[in-house]
């Protein structure tokens, strides 16, 4: 038991090690120790989703989670999504639908939309709302984000049919 320790985990598919303090959040660790700035803190209260990452495949707020508990887990951030310069279908859909203005909220939305489509490949409006209600876009690109979700679902279906 102590105030700091070394954790070993998987970060975006690669083994990672970090010496972290017990009071260090996941976003702080990603930003300060790994220079990953996709997950960023905005509200700091679990409300807005800007800090969304997945831990063992499950979305969490990086601002409300302590890095301490990542030991042995697998963490994925938005930076993992494009593979060899090729964007994830959800990323493509956001660009094509113009689903952002400043883009601050976009990584979090993209991470949540991927969760949504994993659970509901063809989501109805209720399912979309259910998943995205915890993501805020201060530029209010919501109509375009709804379009992007539909587009992303179609792209994914095409990709899996091919």
């Amino acid at each position: 038991m102590s105030t700091s320790r070394t954790i070993q985990f998987t970060l975006n598919g690669r083994p990672a090690t970090a010496d972290i303090a017990a009071n260090e959040t996941i976003v702080d660790m990603l930003t300060n120790r790994f220079e990953l700035r996709g997950a960023r803190e905005s509200c700091g209260q679990g409300l807005c989703g800007c800090c969304t990452v997945t831990v063992d495949g499950m979305a969490v707020s990086g601002c409300l989670s302590l890095a301490w508990f990542l030991d042995g887990k697998s963490v994925e951030t938005v930076e993992a999504l494009s593979k060899g310069g090729v964007l994830d279908p959800v990323q493509e859909a956001f660009i094509e639908a113009g689903a952002f203005q400043c883009g601050f909220c976009t990584p979090g939305f993209i991470m949540m939309v991927r969760q949504l489509l994993d659970a509901h490949p063809d989501p109805d409006e209720d399912e979309v709302r259910h998943y995205l209600t915890g993501n805020l876009c201060r530029c209010s690109a919501y109509p375009e984000i709804m379009d992007a979700v539909k587009l992303a679902a179609a792209k994914r279906k095409r990709a899996s049919a091919a």
């Binding site: 679990g46 409300l64 259910h130 915890g134």
Partner: peptide, 12 residues
């Protein structure tokens, strides 16, 4: 659960 917080909070 449908109107309690959000997916990320409910996950933990």
């Amino acid at each position: 659960m449908k109107t309690l917080a959000n997916v990320r909070v409910r996950n933990v």
